[in-house]
Write a protein that binds this DNA or RNA. Sequence first.
DNA 1: CCTGGTGTCGTGCGGCGGGGAGCATTGAAA
DNA 2: TTTCAATGCTCCCCGCCGCACGACACCAGG
Lengths: 262, 262
Amino acid sequence: MLPAARHQAIVDTVQRERVVRVSDLAQQLGVSLMTVRRDIELLEESGKVERIHGGAKLPGGATTHEPGFELKSTQFPAEKRSIAVEAAGMVHEGMAVGLSAGTTTWALAQELVKGPRITVVTNSVRIADLFHQGAAAGAPFGSTVILIGGERTPSDALVGPIATAALKQLHLDLLFLGVHGMDPDAGFTTPNLLEAETDRAFVAASRKLVVLADHTKWGTQGMSTIAALEEADEVISDAGLSADARRILEESVSRLRIAGQP
Amino acid sequence: MLPAARHQAIVDTVQRERVVRVSDLAQQLGVSLMTVRRDIELLEESGKVERIHGGAKLPGGATTHEPGFELKSTQFPAEKRSIAVEAAGMVHEGMAVGLSAGTTTWALAQELVKGPRITVVTNSVRIADLFHQGAAAGAPFGSTVILIGGERTPSDALVGPIATAALKQLHLDLLFLGVHGMDPDAGFTTPNLLEAETDRAFVAASRKLVVLADHTKWGTQGMSTIAALEEADEVISDAGLSADARRILEESVSRLRIAGQP
DNA sequence: CCTGGTGTCGTGCGGCGGGGAGCATTGAAA
DNA sequence: TTTCAATGCTCCCCGCCGCACGACACCAGG
Protein backbone atom coordinates (compact mmCIF):
# COMPACT_ATOMS: atom_id res chain seq x y z
CA MET A 1 0.00 0.00 0.00
CA LEU A 2 1.53 3.26 -1.18
CA PRO A 3 1.31 6.36 0.98
CA ALA A 4 -0.59 8.28 -1.67
CA ALA A 5 -3.16 5.52 -2.02
CA ARG A 6 -3.49 5.37 1.73
CA HIS A 7 -4.02 9.11 1.98
CA GLN A 8 -6.65 8.91 -0.70
CA ALA A 9 -8.39 6.07 1.08
CA ILE A 10 -8.42 8.06 4.29
CA VAL A 11 -9.84 11.15 2.62
CA ASP A 12 -12.49 9.04 0.90
CA THR A 13 -13.45 7.37 4.12
CA VAL A 14 -13.66 10.65 5.96
CA GLN A 15 -15.84 12.18 3.27
CA ARG A 16 -18.09 9.15 3.32
CA GLU A 17 -18.34 8.65 7.06
CA ARG A 18 -17.80 12.25 8.17
CA VAL A 19 -15.98 10.88 11.20
CA VAL A 20 -13.59 7.96 11.45
CA ARG A 21 -11.43 6.66 14.22
CA VAL A 22 -7.74 6.01 13.92
CA SER A 23 -8.04 2.41 15.02
CA ASP A 24 -10.65 1.60 12.39
CA LEU A 25 -8.55 3.12 9.65
CA ALA A 26 -5.47 1.25 10.83
CA GLN A 27 -7.29 -2.06 10.76
CA GLN A 28 -8.98 -1.38 7.45
CA LEU A 29 -5.78 -0.29 5.73
CA GLY A 30 -3.59 -2.88 7.36
CA VAL A 31 -1.10 -0.44 8.80
CA SER A 32 -0.18 0.60 12.30
CA LEU A 33 -1.86 3.25 14.37
CA MET A 34 1.19 5.45 14.15
CA THR A 35 1.14 5.48 10.39
CA VAL A 36 -2.49 6.50 10.34
CA ARG A 37 -1.80 9.30 12.81
CA ARG A 38 1.07 10.58 10.74
CA ASP A 39 -1.08 10.43 7.63
CA ILE A 40 -3.86 12.35 9.31
CA GLU A 41 -1.33 14.90 10.47
CA LEU A 42 -0.19 15.44 6.89
CA LEU A 43 -3.72 15.55 5.55
CA GLU A 44 -4.64 18.13 8.15
CA GLU A 45 -1.82 20.38 7.01
CA SER A 46 -3.18 20.30 3.49
CA GLY A 47 -6.69 20.87 4.78
CA LYS A 48 -8.14 17.61 3.51
CA VAL A 49 -9.36 16.44 6.88
CA GLU A 50 -9.55 17.79 10.38
CA ARG A 51 -7.98 16.01 13.26
CA ILE A 52 -9.98 15.18 16.36
CA HIS A 53 -9.22 13.14 19.42
CA GLY A 54 -9.28 9.49 18.41
CA GLY A 55 -9.65 10.04 14.70
CA ALA A 56 -10.43 12.53 11.98
CA LYS A 57 -13.45 14.32 10.56
CA LEU A 58 -14.14 16.32 7.49
CA PRO A 59 -13.03 19.94 7.79
CA GLY A 60 -15.37 22.82 8.50
CA GLY A 61 -17.34 22.24 11.69
CA ALA A 62 -21.08 21.53 11.60
CA THR A 63 -20.60 17.87 12.38
CA THR A 64 -20.32 18.39 16.10
CA HIS A 65 -24.03 19.03 16.51
CA GLU A 66 -25.15 16.34 14.10
CA PRO A 67 -27.87 14.11 15.43
CA GLY A 68 -25.37 11.65 16.67
CA PHE A 69 -24.76 9.16 13.92
CA GLU A 70 -21.07 8.96 14.63
CA LEU A 71 -21.56 8.91 18.36
CA LYS A 72 -23.95 6.03 18.24
CA SER A 73 -21.87 4.09 15.78
CA THR A 74 -19.17 3.76 18.38
CA GLN A 75 -21.44 3.47 21.36
CA PHE A 76 -21.72 -0.28 21.63
CA PRO A 77 -19.46 -1.60 18.89
CA ALA A 78 -19.14 -5.07 20.38
CA GLU A 79 -22.88 -5.61 20.75
CA LYS A 80 -23.66 -4.17 17.34
CA ARG A 81 -21.01 -6.27 15.74
CA SER A 82 -22.16 -9.51 17.31
CA ILE A 83 -25.72 -8.73 16.26
CA ALA A 84 -24.45 -8.04 12.75
CA VAL A 85 -22.57 -11.33 12.61
CA GLU A 86 -25.62 -13.22 13.79
CA ALA A 87 -27.80 -11.52 11.20
CA ALA A 88 -25.29 -12.09 8.41
CA GLY A 89 -25.63 -15.81 9.05
CA MET A 90 -29.24 -15.65 7.84
CA VAL A 91 -28.22 -14.41 4.41
CA HIS A 92 -27.53 -16.81 1.57
CA GLU A 93 -26.36 -16.49 -2.01
CA GLY A 94 -28.81 -14.87 -4.36
CA MET A 95 -31.24 -13.48 -1.81
CA ALA A 96 -32.89 -10.09 -2.11
CA VAL A 97 -32.18 -8.39 1.18
CA GLY A 98 -33.43 -5.05 2.46
CA LEU A 99 -31.45 -2.89 4.84
CA SER A 100 -33.02 0.11 6.51
CA ALA A 101 -30.87 3.09 7.47
CA GLY A 102 -29.16 3.04 10.83
CA THR A 103 -26.00 2.19 12.63
CA THR A 104 -26.84 -1.44 13.33
CA THR A 105 -27.78 -2.17 9.75
CA TRP A 106 -24.61 -0.38 8.74
CA ALA A 107 -22.62 -2.78 10.89
CA LEU A 108 -24.48 -5.63 9.21
CA ALA A 109 -23.62 -4.21 5.81
CA GLN A 110 -19.96 -4.38 6.70
CA GLU A 111 -20.38 -8.10 7.27
CA LEU A 112 -22.43 -8.61 4.12
CA VAL A 113 -19.82 -7.00 1.90
CA LYS A 114 -17.58 -9.94 2.70
CA GLY A 115 -20.37 -12.46 2.23
CA PRO A 116 -22.02 -14.20 -0.73
CA ARG A 117 -23.43 -12.39 -3.74
CA ILE A 118 -26.83 -11.00 -3.01
CA THR A 119 -29.06 -8.14 -4.06
CA VAL A 120 -29.20 -5.41 -1.47
CA VAL A 121 -31.93 -2.79 -1.34
CA THR A 122 -31.37 0.12 0.98
CA ASN A 123 -32.33 3.73 1.54
CA SER A 124 -29.04 4.53 3.22
CA VAL A 125 -26.43 6.32 1.16
CA ARG A 126 -23.83 5.20 3.63
CA ILE A 127 -24.64 1.53 3.18
CA ALA A 128 -24.76 1.84 -0.60
CA ASP A 129 -21.34 3.46 -0.49
CA LEU A 130 -20.02 0.59 1.54
CA PHE A 131 -20.99 -1.97 -1.08
CA HIS A 132 -19.88 0.25 -3.89
CA GLN A 133 -16.38 0.65 -2.66
CA GLY A 134 -16.26 -2.93 -1.46
CA ALA A 135 -17.11 -4.09 -4.95
CA ALA A 136 -14.49 -1.84 -6.49
CA ALA A 137 -11.73 -2.94 -4.16
CA GLY A 138 -12.56 -6.54 -3.43
CA ALA A 139 -14.10 -9.36 -5.37
CA PRO A 140 -14.71 -8.98 -9.10
CA PHE A 141 -18.29 -10.08 -8.63
CA GLY A 142 -19.78 -8.01 -5.85
CA SER A 143 -23.35 -7.89 -4.73
CA THR A 144 -25.87 -5.75 -6.55
CA VAL A 145 -26.96 -2.68 -4.65
CA ILE A 146 -30.15 -0.80 -5.31
CA LEU A 147 -30.39 2.54 -3.62
CA ILE A 148 -33.89 3.77 -2.95
CA GLY A 149 -34.33 7.42 -3.83
CA GLY A 150 -35.84 10.31 -1.98
CA GLU A 151 -34.96 13.26 0.16
CA ARG A 152 -32.08 13.06 2.54
CA THR A 153 -32.41 13.13 6.30
CA PRO A 154 -29.56 14.36 8.50
CA SER A 155 -28.57 10.77 9.17
CA ASP A 156 -28.18 10.10 5.45
CA ALA A 157 -31.34 8.10 4.97
CA LEU A 158 -33.42 8.67 1.87
CA VAL A 159 -37.09 9.11 2.64
CA GLY A 160 -40.31 10.51 1.28
CA PRO A 161 -42.84 9.63 -1.42
CA ILE A 162 -40.16 8.74 -3.96
CA ALA A 163 -38.75 6.18 -1.59
CA THR A 164 -42.06 4.62 -0.62
CA ALA A 165 -43.21 4.47 -4.23
CA ALA A 166 -40.00 2.73 -5.25
CA LEU A 167 -40.42 0.18 -2.49
CA LYS A 168 -43.93 -0.66 -3.67
CA GLN A 169 -42.39 -2.09 -6.84
CA LEU A 170 -40.04 -4.37 -4.98
CA HIS A 171 -40.38 -7.65 -3.13
CA LEU A 172 -37.70 -8.70 -0.73
CA ASP A 173 -36.91 -12.08 0.75
CA LEU A 174 -35.67 -10.57 3.95
CA LEU A 175 -35.63 -7.17 5.59
CA PHE A 176 -33.24 -6.19 8.31
CA LEU A 177 -34.76 -3.27 10.14
CA GLY A 178 -32.76 -1.11 12.51
CA VAL A 179 -34.89 0.73 15.05
CA HIS A 180 -34.43 3.46 17.63
CA GLY A 181 -36.84 2.09 20.17
CA MET A 182 -38.51 -1.19 21.04
CA ASP A 183 -41.33 -1.21 23.54
CA PRO A 184 -44.23 -3.54 24.33
CA ASP A 185 -46.77 -0.74 23.91
CA ALA A 186 -45.30 1.38 21.12
CA GLY A 187 -43.70 -1.47 19.19
CA PHE A 188 -40.72 -0.66 17.01
CA THR A 189 -40.24 3.07 16.76
CA THR A 190 -38.07 5.84 15.33
CA PRO A 191 -38.04 9.56 16.16
CA ASN A 192 -38.22 10.60 12.53
CA LEU A 193 -41.68 10.52 10.99
CA LEU A 194 -40.49 10.43 7.41
CA GLU A 195 -38.12 7.62 8.16
CA ALA A 196 -40.90 5.68 9.87
CA GLU A 197 -43.03 5.99 6.75
CA THR A 198 -40.24 4.67 4.58
CA ASP A 199 -39.54 1.86 7.00
CA ARG A 200 -43.21 0.85 6.91
CA ALA A 201 -42.96 0.64 3.13
CA PHE A 202 -39.91 -1.52 3.58
CA VAL A 203 -41.83 -3.83 5.90
CA ALA A 204 -44.72 -4.05 3.45
CA ALA A 205 -42.36 -5.07 0.65
CA SER A 206 -40.71 -7.89 2.57
CA ARG A 207 -41.71 -11.48 3.10
CA LYS A 208 -39.80 -11.73 6.35
CA LEU A 209 -38.98 -9.02 8.89
CA VAL A 210 -35.93 -9.24 11.10
CA VAL A 211 -35.46 -6.43 13.60
CA LEU A 212 -31.96 -5.62 14.80
CA ALA A 213 -31.94 -3.92 18.18
CA ASP A 214 -29.36 -3.97 20.92
CA HIS A 215 -30.54 -4.15 24.51
CA THR A 216 -30.43 -0.38 25.03
CA LYS A 217 -33.36 -0.01 22.65
CA TRP A 218 -35.72 -1.82 24.99
CA GLY A 219 -38.17 0.52 26.68
CA THR A 220 -37.44 3.43 24.34
CA GLN A 221 -40.38 4.95 22.53
CA GLY A 222 -39.64 6.96 19.42
CA MET A 223 -42.20 9.40 18.15
CA SER A 224 -43.40 7.27 15.30
CA THR A 225 -44.22 3.56 15.22
CA ILE A 226 -42.92 1.46 12.37
CA ALA A 227 -44.51 -1.82 13.34
CA ALA A 228 -45.92 -3.69 16.32
CA LEU A 229 -43.76 -6.28 18.03
CA GLU A 230 -45.96 -9.04 16.63
CA GLU A 231 -45.16 -8.08 13.06
CA ALA A 232 -41.54 -9.07 13.38
CA ASP A 233 -40.61 -12.60 12.38
CA GLU A 234 -37.38 -12.37 14.30
CA VAL A 235 -35.66 -10.00 16.66
CA ILE A 236 -31.90 -10.15 17.11
CA SER A 237 -30.54 -8.52 20.23
CA ASP A 238 -27.57 -8.99 22.55
CA ALA A 239 -26.90 -10.62 25.88
CA GLY A 240 -27.54 -7.41 27.78
CA LEU A 241 -31.28 -7.76 27.23
CA SER A 242 -33.21 -8.04 30.50
CA ALA A 243 -35.11 -11.21 31.41
CA ASP A 244 -38.29 -9.20 31.38
CA ALA A 245 -37.70 -8.01 27.85
CA ARG A 246 -36.83 -11.51 26.70
CA ARG A 247 -40.04 -12.90 28.10
CA ILE A 248 -42.20 -10.30 26.41
CA LEU A 249 -40.38 -10.58 23.10
CA GLU A 250 -40.57 -14.35 23.08
CA GLU A 251 -44.32 -14.08 23.50
CA SER A 252 -44.75 -11.50 20.75
CA VAL A 253 -42.19 -12.44 18.15
CA SER A 254 -41.87 -15.72 16.32
CA ARG A 255 -38.26 -16.00 17.28
CA LEU A 256 -35.90 -14.07 19.50
CA ARG A 257 -32.20 -14.48 18.93
CA ILE A 258 -29.54 -13.37 21.34
CA ALA A 259 -26.35 -12.74 19.40
CA GLY A 260 -23.47 -15.02 20.32
CA GLN A 261 -25.73 -17.75 21.70
CA PRO A 262 -27.45 -20.72 20.03
CA MET B 1 9.56 -2.37 -26.17
CA LEU B 2 10.13 1.16 -27.42
CA PRO B 3 10.59 3.94 -24.91
CA ALA B 4 7.63 5.88 -26.28
CA ALA B 5 5.37 2.86 -25.97
CA ARG B 6 6.63 2.28 -22.46
CA HIS B 7 5.91 5.86 -21.49
CA GLN B 8 2.44 5.60 -22.87
CA ALA B 9 1.89 2.36 -20.98
CA ILE B 10 2.99 4.01 -17.78
CA VAL B 11 0.70 6.99 -18.29
CA ASP B 12 -2.18 4.66 -19.09
CA THR B 13 -1.55 2.58 -16.02
CA VAL B 14 -1.33 5.63 -13.81
CA GLN B 15 -4.57 7.02 -15.15
CA ARG B 16 -6.26 3.68 -14.69
CA GLU B 17 -4.89 2.78 -11.27
CA ARG B 18 -4.38 6.33 -10.00
CA VAL B 19 -1.28 5.18 -8.14
CA VAL B 20 1.25 2.58 -9.18
CA ARG B 21 4.46 1.39 -7.65
CA VAL B 22 7.73 1.32 -9.48
CA SER B 23 8.26 -2.35 -8.79
CA ASP B 24 4.91 -3.32 -10.30
CA LEU B 25 5.56 -1.30 -13.42
CA ALA B 26 9.02 -2.80 -13.79
CA GLN B 27 7.68 -6.32 -13.58
CA GLN B 28 4.73 -5.63 -15.81
CA LEU B 29 6.83 -3.97 -18.51
CA GLY B 30 9.74 -6.34 -18.21
CA VAL B 31 12.32 -3.67 -17.55
CA SER B 32 14.44 -2.77 -14.58
CA LEU B 33 13.50 -0.56 -11.69
CA MET B 34 15.96 2.10 -12.79
CA THR B 35 14.41 2.41 -16.22
CA VAL B 36 10.99 2.87 -14.76
CA ARG B 37 12.32 5.53 -12.40
CA ARG B 38 13.96 7.39 -15.24
CA ASP B 39 10.77 7.17 -17.26
CA ILE B 40 8.76 8.54 -14.41
CA GLU B 41 11.27 11.33 -14.02
CA LEU B 42 10.77 12.31 -17.64
CA LEU B 43 7.02 12.04 -17.43
CA GLU B 44 7.02 14.22 -14.38
CA GLU B 45 8.87 16.96 -16.22
CA SER B 46 6.19 16.97 -18.88
CA GLY B 47 3.51 16.92 -16.23
CA LYS B 48 1.97 13.60 -17.25
CA VAL B 49 2.35 11.99 -13.85
CA GLU B 50 3.48 12.99 -10.42
CA ARG B 51 6.30 11.22 -8.70
CA ILE B 52 5.86 9.88 -5.20
CA HIS B 53 7.92 7.71 -2.95
CA GLY B 54 7.70 4.17 -4.27
CA GLY B 55 5.90 4.94 -7.47
CA ALA B 56 3.86 7.53 -9.34
CA LYS B 57 0.38 8.97 -9.21
CA LEU B 58 -1.65 11.13 -11.48
CA PRO B 59 -0.91 14.83 -11.07
CA GLY B 60 -3.07 17.26 -9.19
CA GLY B 61 -4.52 16.73 -5.76
CA ALA B 62 -6.83 13.79 -6.07
CA THR B 63 -10.10 14.26 -4.24
CA THR B 64 -12.49 11.83 -5.85
CA HIS B 65 -12.16 8.10 -5.91
CA GLU B 66 -13.38 7.39 -9.41
CA PRO B 67 -10.54 7.04 -11.89
CA GLY B 68 -12.51 7.99 -14.98
CA PHE B 69 -14.31 10.72 -13.14
CA GLU B 70 -11.16 12.19 -11.72
CA LEU B 71 -9.57 12.33 -15.10
CA LYS B 72 -12.49 13.92 -16.85
CA SER B 73 -13.15 16.45 -14.12
CA THR B 74 -9.70 17.91 -14.60
CA GLN B 75 -9.69 17.65 -18.35
CA PHE B 76 -11.30 20.96 -19.27
CA PRO B 77 -11.92 22.72 -16.00
CA ALA B 78 -12.09 26.21 -17.50
CA GLU B 79 -14.60 25.31 -20.21
CA LYS B 80 -16.71 23.26 -17.86
CA ARG B 81 -16.73 25.99 -15.30
CA SER B 82 -17.74 28.72 -17.71
CA ILE B 83 -20.53 26.50 -19.01
CA ALA B 84 -21.60 25.88 -15.43
CA VAL B 85 -21.67 29.59 -14.63
CA GLU B 86 -23.71 30.30 -17.73
CA ALA B 87 -26.18 27.56 -16.85
CA ALA B 88 -26.44 28.67 -13.23
CA GLY B 89 -27.70 32.01 -14.47
CA MET B 90 -30.85 30.32 -15.76
CA VAL B 91 -31.84 29.12 -12.31
CA HIS B 92 -34.07 31.17 -10.05
CA GLU B 93 -35.39 30.83 -6.53
CA GLY B 94 -37.91 28.08 -6.01
CA MET B 95 -37.44 26.23 -9.29
CA ALA B 96 -37.45 22.46 -9.59
CA VAL B 97 -34.26 21.63 -11.43
CA GLY B 98 -33.04 18.28 -12.69
CA LEU B 99 -29.38 17.41 -12.97
CA SER B 100 -28.26 14.30 -14.78
CA ALA B 101 -25.07 12.53 -13.74
CA GLY B 102 -21.80 13.69 -15.24
CA THR B 103 -18.86 15.96 -14.77
CA THR B 104 -20.37 19.02 -16.38
CA THR B 105 -23.53 18.84 -14.33
CA TRP B 106 -21.33 18.27 -11.31
CA ALA B 107 -19.55 21.52 -12.07
CA LEU B 108 -22.94 23.18 -12.36
CA ALA B 109 -23.96 21.74 -9.01
CA GLN B 110 -20.98 23.42 -7.44
CA GLU B 111 -22.32 26.74 -8.67
CA LEU B 112 -25.88 26.00 -7.62
CA VAL B 113 -24.88 25.22 -4.05
CA LYS B 114 -23.98 28.87 -3.68
CA GLY B 115 -27.13 30.04 -5.44
CA PRO B 116 -30.77 30.57 -4.47
CA ARG B 117 -32.93 27.98 -2.78
CA ILE B 118 -34.26 25.50 -5.26
CA THR B 119 -35.35 21.88 -5.43
CA VAL B 120 -32.78 19.70 -7.10
CA VAL B 121 -33.57 16.28 -8.52
CA THR B 122 -30.60 14.16 -9.52
CA ASN B 123 -29.55 10.57 -10.03
CA SER B 124 -25.95 11.34 -9.14
CA VAL B 125 -24.81 10.41 -5.66
CA ARG B 126 -21.92 12.79 -6.05
CA ILE B 127 -24.13 15.76 -6.77
CA ALA B 128 -26.45 14.90 -3.92
CA ASP B 129 -23.43 14.71 -1.64
CA LEU B 130 -22.37 18.14 -2.77
CA PHE B 131 -25.65 19.74 -1.74
CA HIS B 132 -25.79 17.75 1.44
CA GLN B 133 -22.38 18.93 2.53
CA GLY B 134 -23.06 22.45 1.39
CA ALA B 135 -26.26 22.57 3.39
CA ALA B 136 -24.56 21.28 6.49
CA ALA B 137 -21.64 23.67 6.29
CA GLY B 138 -23.15 26.76 4.75
CA ALA B 139 -26.50 28.44 4.88
CA PRO B 140 -29.13 27.25 7.37
CA PHE B 141 -31.67 27.08 4.57
CA GLY B 142 -30.12 25.08 1.76
CA SER B 143 -31.81 23.75 -1.31
CA THR B 144 -33.86 20.59 -1.17
CA VAL B 145 -32.23 17.62 -2.85
CA ILE B 146 -34.10 14.60 -4.07
CA LEU B 147 -31.94 11.68 -5.03
CA ILE B 148 -33.42 9.33 -7.56
CA GLY B 149 -32.88 5.70 -6.63
CA GLY B 150 -31.65 2.74 -8.60
CA GLU B 151 -28.61 0.67 -9.27
CA ARG B 152 -25.21 2.27 -9.32
CA THR B 153 -23.03 2.62 -12.39
CA PRO B 154 -19.24 2.91 -12.11
CA SER B 155 -19.54 6.66 -12.49
CA ASP B 156 -21.88 6.90 -9.49
CA ALA B 157 -25.06 7.44 -11.41
CA LEU B 158 -28.20 5.69 -10.24
CA VAL B 159 -30.04 4.00 -13.08
CA GLY B 160 -32.56 1.30 -13.86
CA PRO B 161 -36.30 0.77 -13.51
CA ILE B 162 -36.40 2.24 -10.02
CA ALA B 163 -34.93 5.46 -11.31
CA THR B 164 -37.15 5.74 -14.35
CA ALA B 165 -40.27 4.95 -12.32
CA ALA B 166 -39.39 7.60 -9.78
CA LEU B 167 -38.91 10.16 -12.52
CA LYS B 168 -42.36 9.42 -13.95
CA GLN B 169 -43.84 10.86 -10.77
CA LEU B 170 -41.94 14.11 -11.04
CA HIS B 171 -42.24 17.22 -13.14
CA LEU B 172 -39.32 19.54 -13.46
CA ASP B 173 -39.14 23.14 -14.60
CA LEU B 174 -35.72 22.67 -16.05
CA LEU B 175 -33.37 19.81 -16.78
CA PHE B 176 -29.66 20.20 -17.23
CA LEU B 177 -28.43 17.21 -19.15
CA GLY B 178 -24.77 16.33 -19.41
CA VAL B 179 -23.92 14.19 -22.43
CA HIS B 180 -20.95 12.24 -23.70
CA GLY B 181 -21.50 12.91 -27.35
CA MET B 182 -23.33 15.38 -29.57
CA ASP B 183 -23.70 14.65 -33.26
CA PRO B 184 -26.07 15.78 -36.03
CA ASP B 185 -26.99 12.18 -36.87
CA ALA B 186 -26.92 10.44 -33.51
CA GLY B 187 -28.14 13.38 -31.42
CA PHE B 188 -27.18 13.50 -27.77
CA THR B 189 -25.59 10.24 -26.73
CA THR B 190 -23.97 8.36 -23.86
CA PRO B 191 -21.99 5.10 -23.94
CA ASN B 192 -24.02 3.57 -21.11
CA LEU B 193 -27.36 2.10 -22.13
CA LEU B 194 -28.84 2.16 -18.67
CA GLU B 195 -27.82 5.72 -18.16
CA ALA B 196 -29.38 6.67 -21.48
CA GLU B 197 -32.66 5.13 -20.38
CA THR B 198 -32.64 7.11 -17.16
CA ASP B 199 -31.71 10.27 -19.00
CA ARG B 200 -34.63 9.78 -21.36
CA ALA B 201 -36.91 9.54 -18.34
CA PHE B 202 -35.38 12.76 -17.10
CA VAL B 203 -36.10 14.43 -20.42
CA ALA B 204 -39.69 13.19 -20.37
CA ALA B 205 -40.22 14.62 -16.89
CA SER B 206 -38.97 18.09 -17.76
CA ARG B 207 -40.69 21.07 -19.32
CA LYS B 208 -37.44 22.46 -20.64
CA LEU B 209 -34.28 20.67 -21.68
CA VAL B 210 -30.90 22.34 -21.51
CA VAL B 211 -27.95 20.29 -22.71
CA LEU B 212 -24.51 21.07 -21.33
CA ALA B 213 -21.72 19.99 -23.66
CA ASP B 214 -18.26 21.41 -24.17
CA HIS B 215 -16.90 21.61 -27.69
CA THR B 216 -15.06 18.29 -27.47
CA LYS B 217 -18.40 16.50 -27.41
CA TRP B 218 -19.22 17.56 -30.94
CA GLY B 219 -18.94 14.72 -33.42
CA THR B 220 -18.78 12.04 -30.75
CA GLN B 221 -21.35 9.27 -30.96
CA GLY B 222 -22.01 7.31 -27.81
CA MET B 223 -23.63 3.90 -28.08
CA SER B 224 -27.06 4.99 -26.97
CA THR B 225 -29.07 8.05 -27.98
CA ILE B 226 -30.77 10.09 -25.27
CA ALA B 227 -32.49 12.60 -27.50
CA ALA B 228 -32.30 14.17 -30.95
CA LEU B 229 -30.74 17.58 -31.29
CA GLU B 230 -34.20 19.05 -32.00
CA GLU B 231 -35.50 17.99 -28.60
CA ALA B 232 -33.20 20.34 -26.74
CA ASP B 233 -34.55 23.77 -25.90
CA GLU B 234 -31.07 25.08 -25.32
CA VAL B 235 -27.51 23.89 -25.72
CA ILE B 236 -24.73 25.53 -23.74
CA SER B 237 -21.22 25.00 -25.05
CA ASP B 238 -17.93 26.88 -25.05
CA ALA B 239 -16.00 29.08 -27.44
CA GLY B 240 -14.02 26.17 -28.83
CA LEU B 241 -17.06 24.99 -30.80
CA SER B 242 -16.44 24.96 -34.55
CA ALA B 243 -18.38 27.24 -36.89
CA ASP B 244 -19.80 24.17 -38.57
CA ALA B 245 -21.15 22.83 -35.30
CA ARG B 246 -22.60 26.21 -34.40
CA ARG B 247 -24.45 26.44 -37.67
CA ILE B 248 -25.98 22.98 -37.34
CA LEU B 249 -26.91 23.48 -33.70
CA GLU B 250 -28.50 26.86 -34.37
CA GLU B 251 -30.68 25.23 -36.98
CA SER B 252 -31.71 22.32 -34.76
CA VAL B 253 -31.95 23.81 -31.32
CA SER B 254 -34.14 26.70 -30.19
CA ARG B 255 -31.18 28.45 -28.71
CA LEU B 256 -27.44 27.91 -28.65
CA ARG B 257 -25.42 29.62 -25.97
CA ILE B 258 -21.69 29.96 -25.99
CA ALA B 259 -20.49 30.35 -22.42
CA GLY B 260 -18.81 33.66 -21.69
CA GLN B 261 -20.55 35.47 -24.57
CA PRO B 262 -23.90 37.25 -24.80
C1' DC C 1 -14.92 19.69 42.42
C1' DC C 2 -11.66 16.16 42.61
C1' DT C 3 -9.81 11.57 41.30
C1' DG C 4 -8.87 7.28 39.22
C1' DG C 5 -9.03 4.49 34.89
C1' DT C 6 -8.91 3.83 30.08
C1' DG C 7 -7.69 4.89 25.75
C1' DT C 8 -5.13 8.06 22.73
C1' DC C 9 -1.15 10.92 21.40
C1' DG C 10 3.73 12.10 20.75
C1' DT C 11 8.79 10.87 20.59
C1' DG C 12 12.93 8.12 19.84
C1' DC C 13 15.00 4.24 17.85
C1' DG C 14 15.88 0.37 14.72
C1' DG C 15 14.72 -2.12 10.45
C1' DC C 16 13.63 -2.07 5.67
C1' DG C 17 12.59 -0.92 1.26
C1' DG C 18 13.08 2.63 -2.30
C1' DG C 19 15.98 6.46 -4.57
C1' DG C 20 20.18 8.28 -6.64
C1' DA C 21 25.07 8.46 -8.76
C1' DG C 22 28.36 6.29 -11.29
C1' DC C 23 29.95 2.73 -14.38
C1' DA C 24 29.72 -1.44 -17.54
C1' DT C 25 27.11 -3.38 -21.34
C1' DT C 26 24.31 -3.57 -25.40
C1' DG C 27 22.59 -2.38 -29.80
C1' DA C 28 21.81 0.65 -33.49
C1' DA C 29 23.19 4.45 -36.42
C1' DA C 30 26.98 6.98 -38.73
C1' DT D 1 34.57 0.21 -36.94
C1' DT D 2 33.32 4.06 -34.15
C1' DT D 3 30.06 6.50 -31.45
C1' DC D 4 26.31 7.42 -28.66
C1' DA D 5 22.05 6.74 -26.39
C1' DA D 6 19.64 3.63 -23.56
C1' DT D 7 19.62 0.14 -20.19
C1' DG D 8 20.95 -2.50 -16.09
C1' DC D 9 23.75 -3.11 -11.99
C1' DT D 10 25.78 -1.96 -7.43
C1' DC D 11 26.71 0.61 -3.43
C1' DC D 12 25.23 4.01 -0.30
C1' DC D 13 21.90 7.23 1.57
C1' DC D 14 17.41 8.54 2.98
C1' DG D 15 12.60 8.40 3.92
C1' DC D 16 8.90 5.48 5.75
C1' DC D 17 7.12 2.37 9.01
C1' DG D 18 6.36 -0.07 13.36
C1' DC D 19 7.38 -0.81 18.32
C1' DA D 20 7.89 0.85 23.14
C1' DC D 21 7.57 4.12 26.50
C1' DG D 22 5.93 8.25 28.85
C1' DA D 23 2.45 12.09 28.74
C1' DC D 24 -2.03 13.56 28.10
C1' DA D 25 -7.14 13.92 27.27
C1' DC D 26 -11.83 12.13 28.01
C1' DC D 27 -15.10 9.71 31.05
C1' DA D 28 -17.24 8.12 35.10
C1' DG D 29 -17.72 7.95 40.00
C1' DG D 30 -17.37 9.87 44.57
